[in-house]
Computed example of a mutant assay.
Amino acid sequence: MTHSSTAGTVKADDDAPVQRQTTAGGVCTLTLNRPAQYNALSDDVLTALSDALSSVHDDPDTRCVVLSANGRAFCAGHDLKELRSTEDPDRHRATFERCSTVMQQILALPVPVIARVQGLATAAGCQLVATADLAVAADNARFAVSGINAGLFCSTPAVALSRNIATKRAFEMLVTGEFIDAATARDWGLVNRVVAPDDLDEAVTALTQQICAKSSYAIRRGKALFYHQLEEPLSAAYTRASAAISADLSSADAREGIDAFIDKRAPVWRDA
């Protein structure tokens, strides 16, 4: 991926399947760039997205990632034409394993990932929204795991969806293929905020600014702890969390943050 620097911003090649743009404030935007195909996740897109996530993971200056898309749709899921172009089950398995790797990379990133959703988010596109740590949607966005309409149960999207919303709601979406609107997605816990389409960028920026104003050290440590403890029994989760917060109390940022609170002043983060 070719990058050029302009006015504190690093931008990706306009023709790349996934564009990357990083601001001086540490917000990295990864933009799906197949608008004519409703940003369907072809193998090329998945490979580019995986490479971009790997690069972001190793960048200490990144504070937050925004997952965006060009065009009318956020993401229509997997590229069905590409999947039907071969009968090779090994090729199919490789595609879905690549997609599953991408989803796990998002969760493994040390910084928050925000899905910026406009238009449709279906099947693996809905999976992307469910996998992101946070999601802001335009009020005209619509969500579905609609593979069942094509004779295919959305097995991999079900993994992320069932970890976001109640079991019966997730299963109903999976077996009916019906769409839900943005307001319902917010009520069910699939997205955090819903705004008018013209306000979408402003809402995402406001959220990234809130995150970037906090201690990067605390955010990075906190995200890792959050997902680890979710998979553990209650006692083990508390043991892990107690050890984490005890260790974090000795960090420079925690000492500064507590002193600033006591002194009634704004903290100056040291990120350590």
Results as ranks from 00 to 15, higher is better:
47 T>L: 08
72 R>S: 02
72 R>P: 15
200 L>Q: 11
113 V>L: 12
197 P>A: 02
175 V>D: 14
170 A>G: 09
207 L>T: 05
59 D>L: 06
136 V>P: 13
168 K>P: 14
254 A>C: 11
116 R>S: 06
127 Q>R: 15
189 G>R: 12
123 A>N: 15
108 A>K: 14
99 C>P: 13
7 A>N: 15
65 V>L: 14
234 L>Q: 14
93 R>V: 02
258 I>W: 08
10 V>R: 14
67 L>W: 05
44 D>K: 04
182 A>S: 09
109 L>Y: 08
8 G>S: 12
70 N>E: 11
151 G>W: 04
271 D>V: 00
92 H>W: 06
152 L>M: 10
30 L>A: 06
9 T>M: 15
264 K>M: 07
272 A>L: 04
108 A>R: 15
89 P>C: 02
126 C>D: 13
18 V>W: 07
224 A>V: 03
200 L>C: 04
197 P>S: 03
121 A>E: 13
53 L>E: 10
91 R>F: 05
86 T>M: 08
114 I>M: 11
245 I>A: 07
215 S>E: 04
159 V>K: 15
154 C>M: 14
234 L>I: 05
161 L>R: 12
24 A>I: 03
166 A>N: 14
237 A>G: 06
180 I>N: 10
176 T>H: 06
99 C>A: 08
203 A>S: 05
113 V>T: 07
265 R>L: 04
259 D>W: 03
220 R>Y: 01
162 S>E: 15
224 A>G: 05
129 V>Y: 10
123 A>F: 05
202 E>G: 04
89 P>H: 01
228 H>D: 14
95 T>V: 01
223 K>E: 07
23 T>S: 13
76 A>S: 07
88 D>Y: 01
28 C>L: 12
27 V>L: 10
72 R>T: 00
261 F>L: 12
130 A>W: 05
89 P>T: 00
66 V>Y: 09
141 A>S: 11
167 T>W: 08
155 S>Q: 13
241 A>W: 11
262 I>D: 13
255 R>S: 05
105 Q>L: 15
181 D>W: 03
214 K>V: 00
244 A>P: 08
82 E>V: 01
179 F>Y: 10
267 P>W: 00
189 G>A: 08
4 S>R: 15
119 G>I: 00
225 L>T: 02
60 P>E: 02
234 L>E: 12
209 Q>G: 03
180 I>H: 08
198 D>W: 01
188 W>A: 01
110 P>Q: 01
189 G>C: 09
185 A>F: 03
64 C>S: 05
81 K>Y: 06
214 K>H: 04
154 C>A: 13
188 W>S: 05
266 A>C: 07
107 L>I: 03
170 A>Y: 04
255 R>P: 12
47 T>K: 13
59 D>T: 01
211 I>V: 06
239 T>M: 12
120 L>W: 04
198 D>A: 07
36 A>H: 07
57 H>T: 03
12 A>N: 13
254 A>F: 08
155 S>A: 09
109 L>I: 02
89 P>Q: 09
42 S>K: 09
263 D>L: 06
62 T>N: 11
261 F>E: 11
217 Y>K: 08
97 E>W: 09
